Simulated assay, not measured.
Amino acid sequence: MTHQTHFFYAVPLPKEIKLIMKDHCEKLKLSLPFNRWVHHEDLHITLAFLGFASLEQLEKSKEYVRNELRGIHSFSLKINQLGIFGRKESPRIFWGDTIKSDELQSARKKVFTACEDAGFQLETRPFRPHITLARKWSGEEPFQNEMLDVWHELQQNPLAFLASEVVLFQTHLQKTPKYEVKEIFPLI
């Protein structure tokens, strides 16, 4: 059975932040029973999910993204809280959030527009930047919002990092980590 591969553009987390997140996630696993935790090497903020892409369409998106990001400067991001997507009592996604960033919104808009111009049909939901940490609540008791307070110091001392590149990733579902870097678009 062959698996169709997917592609997406994202802002990766720097290695040192991934290692800090790894340490915290190891502790979070003890009190937050989710089925699947994201490998720390795969932590990122998705800008545009492409899904399956032909080589021609992918090359066109890379050209357009490169042109759109030309002249864009690196920018600071801060991870400051935890959150969930899905049903309150049984969330499907557990994530880390960043403090609102106009620079991130702008970079996302440029990448998103470039991918649409390359012919991709992209998701139309409003952009909610986040770093997926885990999927599928598996606790015997319903999830409680108070459980998000488990990483107390995060709001007082946000994890700051420099977003210095956008990356085109390819997904390999049968591997760990799952995401392979296909192209890097450095920011100034």
Rank of each mutant, 00 (worst) to 15 (best):
F7K: 05
Y9P: 04
Y9N: 08
V11L: 10
P12C: 06
P12L: 05
L13N: 02
P14K: 11
P14A: 05
P14M: 12
P14T: 03
P14W: 14
K15Q: 13
K15G: 01
E16D: 15
K18N: 10
M21P: 08
K22P: 01
K22Y: 11
D23W: 02
H24E: 15
H24G: 02
H24V: 07
C25N: 14
C25T: 15
C25V: 15
K27L: 11
L32G: 10
P33T: 06
P33H: 11
F34R: 04
N35C: 08
R36L: 10
R36K: 15
W37H: 10
V38G: 10
E41Y: 09
L43I: 06
L43N: 07
H44I: 03
H44F: 13
I45M: 12
I45Y: 06
T46L: 05
T46E: 12
T46M: 14
F49V: 02
L50C: 13
L50G: 15
G51E: 00
G51Q: 05
F52E: 15
S54H: 09
S54C: 02
L55N: 11
E56Q: 15
Q57P: 11
L58M: 14
E59W: 00
E59S: 13
K60M: 10
Y64G: 10
Y64I: 00
Y64S: 13
Y64A: 14
V65R: 07
V65W: 00
R66V: 01
L69C: 13
R70I: 01
I72K: 14
S74N: 12
S74T: 11
F75T: 03
L77W: 04
L77R: 07
K78S: 13
K78Y: 02
I79C: 01
N80S: 10
Q81M: 07
L82E: 04
G83S: 12
G83A: 08
G83N: 06
I84P: 00
I84V: 15
G86D: 03
R87Y: 03
R87E: 12
R87W: 00
E89G: 06
E89P: 00
S90P: 00
P91Y: 07
P91D: 05
P91R: 06
R92F: 05
R92H: 13
F94A: 04
G96S: 12
D97Y: 05
K100S: 10
K100A: 11
S101R: 08
D102G: 09
